[in-house]
Amino acid sequence: MAGKIYSKPIVFTLMVTVTVLAGSIVMMAYPMLRPEMHPKLENLRPFTALQLAGRDIYQREGCVNCHSQMVRPLRTEVMRYGDYSKAGEFAYDRPFLWGSKRTGPDLAREGGKRPDSWHLAHYENAQAVVPRSNMPGYGWMKRNKLDPATVKAHMDALSMPYTAQQIAELSGKTEMDALVAYTQQLGHSVEKPRAAGGFDLAAVNPFGSSPQAIAAGAALYAQSCSVCHGDEGHGGIGPSFTENKFLAQPGYGTDGEYFAIIAGGSDAKKDIGRPGLPDGGMEAFGSQIPPDGIWRIVSYIRAQQLHEGGESPATEKREHDTGGKH
């Protein structure tokens, strides 16, 4: 009997269909009926028109081919990126953009980690900001203006709430603006654990001005800090720390304060009690660099302040012209 189906194509095809549908129904269709597949976090906001335009560009450029947006609940992953991804974060994501390859870093917690100015510089020329990066340049997006009517149509298709003013504000905005806006809202619905807190602001650097510590600190600085604060601490995307200012107020900070801002990032500004730049968004390095390393960077910062801070612009220029090393 069973052997007969191989000479009955219709019956055979129906049997194949039933067999294919079995797993599909249990694993794909049935879960849709369960509320656990449709959660929404309390803090989750729909995309604004500018953010959705940025998301469209993120899709168009295939960013998802190299960047995941899904932090797995693994210790090192949470340390590197931030809190692990929650099902309720993605209620407005059509389609999901978790990705399957992480050629570049995960972006699920990228929002607010760095200032807009960092992203603008990085999207324009990634290698200028992160040496040896393999990310393509997207400077051309600065020249492409958004089309408010298209964005509006996309908002309508998704039934996203918007105001006429929001759409009007899109004119004149570039694709780059939209992409940055999208990047900066990533992970907004999950409260960021405060990296800062509990720092001893009066702590004294155990390494002081030991030459070995300065040298080691310089190496760490070149790796993690010079991208934003310049090769010698004169600033760039982030502020200078050699001009007798700290967090936008006159006067240098204490050793403990420098330790706090490096380990805790912008969150530590409150503890320190200085305002910093309005759009400042320093990353917290506490989970990436061990405390001894951070203290060595502080040693280097102090050395630079002594050395560079005392220089007149003229000496500084002369040193550069003669290729002088610091």
């Binding site: 449709h38 994501d93 059509r94 389609p95 999901f96 998704l158």
Partner: peptide, 24 residues
């Protein structure tokens, strides 16, 4: 999907559900 233009659409399924249908 939800068409949003001649060459633009959004997945009918959202978030976790979108992920599950896609990888199925």
């Amino acid at each position: 999907s939800i068409p949003a233009g001649l060459l633009k659409s959004y997945h009918l399924f959202a978030g976790v559900n979108s992920a599950n249908v896609q990888w199925w």
